[in-house]
Each structure stands twice: as structure tokens, then as C-alpha cells.
């Protein structure tokens, strides 16, 4: 019988039909595997101070309070908040891609988004959803009810329109429409033609006061380029093709991809946003843990 942890593997989750179960399995497997993990709550809202006692994590000491009072306090976060969390899911044609017959990038992103929604609603946070490709397709306002989660999952389960990408435009549109300070969690391969515009759009979101987390979802083949020999590659979005040789371009490709990621990371981290690169071969808990570690560093 599969354990909860086994559902953290993409190839297992792929076998589960219902999205709500997928989200549940991912989250429960993730939490079961945390043990002495850095997980101390997903909320970002500060609650109160408490006196430091030996055994507490020194990393939680509030040094500003220590400077003011000459006493050691640790920061406590509110376990139940009314934080609004927006799940922004890229459903463009480039996301509907799986190199080895496994999960597509979109399926992987949906699983991650569902898991996030599951966790957020579990702690009474409001969760909303925006799906987009060359334009915004679905816009579900955040709520913290159980039914809200079902609605989000149902929306995610709908097939994508199969259009191209207008990532920057969509993000700018979202930034304009959502005025309340929220947590924005973006799931995208970020493969827009103009990376500068993408960065500007992400900055726009951050400028509007939103907390921003970007899950950069790539396919395993895109992330590692394991192919060999002559290739005839086809871009489903631009419909362009290129004949090349895997060995001859691999090193250069990976270098350019790394430079692309570095550019995004630098741009986001400069704005105190999180950049979480994942690929479809990674277990979900690693993606979530990576995100949580980033969050904890910041708060």
C-alpha cells in the first residue's frame, strides 16, 4: 500500500485522477515527511513576542526587541490568518509539454497549486486563482471556505485553451486588478519572448505591495537537456523548428538556460520575492521545502 510520502513522486501523483486527492496526498505526504523540518506555519503575519527559553530556535530571536529591551524574545506568527493568496497558473501551450510521457509542466504546476491551496485553506487563509495564457482566462476571488478550494480545483482541472503566452501582459493585468495586498504564487515556465518585460511585470506585482513567489516550472528535458544525437526540435508556441545535434548544443544551451534563471533570480530576489526553480522530475516536497526555506529566511 502506498505511503503518504510515495504521493510526493510525480509519477505516482499522475496516477491519481481527482485533483483534490492529488492535493491532499501531496500536502499530507509533505507534512508527514517534515519531521524536524523548518516548517513553522505557512502564514507570514506576525502575531506576538514570547520570552526566549532554552531550546527555542535562536534563529527566531527578535534582535530588534532585544536591542530595545535588553531581553530575549522570539517572534511568533499567527497560525490562523485572513491572508489572501492568489495562485497564478500559466496555461499557455508551452506549459502543455512533457518530454518523456510523464507529467506535463502544466499538470505539475496544477498539482503544486492545488497543494498550496489545500494547505492555505487548511489554515483558514483565503485562496484565489488566476489562470492565463495569452490573456487572463479565469479569475476566482479568494475565499477561505472549503467550497472555495473545490471551486479552484475544478477550475484547474479544466483543459487549457491551448493558446500562446502573453505572460507580461497578463501579470500586469493581474497587478492592476488586485489591489489588496496579497500573496501571489506564480506557476509558469516563464518562456516569454521578452524576458525584460516579464521582469518588469513581476516588479509591477511587487510594486503593488504583493508578496511574490515564483515557481519556475520546466520539463526535465528542458532542465537537463539529456537528449543525444541529431534532433529536429519544434517549438509548439512559435511553431518554429530547428535541426541540430544534441552534443553540439548541450553545453551552450545549459549555460544560456542558467543565465536566464540567474537573471530571473537576481531580479526577484532584488525585490525580496522568491524564485523557486523546479522541474517535472522533482518530488513535490522538494519544491515545497525549497519555497518554505526561502520564506523562513526572509521572515
Amino acid at each position: 500500500m502506498p505511503t503518504a510520502e510515495s504521493y510526493l513522486r510525480p509519477e505516482v501523483i499522475q496516477q491519481v485522477q481527482r485533483l483534490d486527492l492529488k492535493a491532499r496526498f501531496i500536502v499530507e505526504g509533505f507534512i508527514a515527511g517534515l519531521h524536524d523540518s523548518p516548517y513553522h506555519g505557512l502564514s507570514v503575519e506576525f502575531s506576538e513576542h514570547r520570552k526566549y527559553t532554552p531550546g527555542d530556535d535562536p534563529g527566531l530571536i527578535d534582535y530588534n526587541a532585544w536591542a530595545r529591551t535588553d531581553k530575549l524574545y522570539i517572534r511568533k506568527y499567527r497560525a490562523e490568518t485572513n491572508l489572501a493568496c492568489w495562485l497564478l497558473v500559466d496555461q499557455s501551450r508551452s506549459m502543455d509539454y512533457a518530454s518523456g510521457g510523464g507529467m506535463t509542466k502544466l499538470e505539475y504546476a496544477i498539482c503544486l497549486a492545488a497543494a498550496m491551496g489545500y494547505m492555505m485553506t487548511g489554515q483558514q487563509d483565503a485562496v484565489g486563482l488566476v489562470t492565463f495564457d495569452d490573456r487572463v482566462r479565469q479569475f476566482i476571488q479568494p475565499r477561505s471556505s472549503r467550497r472555495q478550494l473545490m471551486g479552484i480545483l475544478a477550475a484547474l482541472a479544466q483543459p487549457p485553451a491551448g493558446a500562446g503566452t502573453a505572460l507580461a501582459d497578463c501579470l500586469n493585468q493581474v497587478a492592476s486588478r488586485i489591489r489588496k495586498r496579497s500573496l501571489m504564487v506564480l506557476f509558469s515556465d516563464l518562456l516569454d519572448e521578452d524576458v525584460d518585460r516579464t521582469v518588469e511585470a513581476l516588479h509591477h506585482l511587487r510594486f503593488r505591495g504583493h508578496d511574490l513567489v515564483v515557481f519556475h516550472v520546466l520539463d526535465e528535458a528542458e532542465a537537463h537537456f539529456p537528449m543525444e544525437g541529431p534532433l529536429q526540435l519544434h517549438d509548439p508556441e512559435s511553431d518554429e523548428s530547428l535541426a541540430t545535434d544534441a552534443e553540439s548544443v548541450r553545453a551552450e544551451y545549459l549555460a544560456r538556460l542558467a543565465a536566464f534563471k540567474d537573471r530571473l533570480r537576481d531580479a526577484l530576489e532584488g525585490q525580496k520575492a522568491d524564485f523557486v526553480p523546479v522541474d517535472t522530475s522533482m518530488q513535490f516536497d522538494k519544491a515545497l521545502t525549497s519555497y518554505l526555506l526561502n520564506r523562513r529566511k526572509r521572515y
Binding site: 528535458a221 526540435l233 517549438d235 541540430t244 548541450r250 544560456r256
Partner: peptide, 29 residues
Amino acid sequence: VMRGRPRQMDFPALRFVRQSHLASAGRTR
């Protein structure tokens, strides 16, 4: 003979491959 049968596949990150192809094709050849 092998060159005559390239493997066909979709690849959304083609833009990076195209740039790499232009940069290294001569040297690789």
C-alpha cells in the same frame, strides 16, 4: 547514415537551443 534520421520532438525552450546552435555549430562541426 545517423545524420539522416534526426529525432523529432517538441521543445518549448527552443529559443535557447537556437542561440546555442548558432554559437557552437561551426566549432562542433
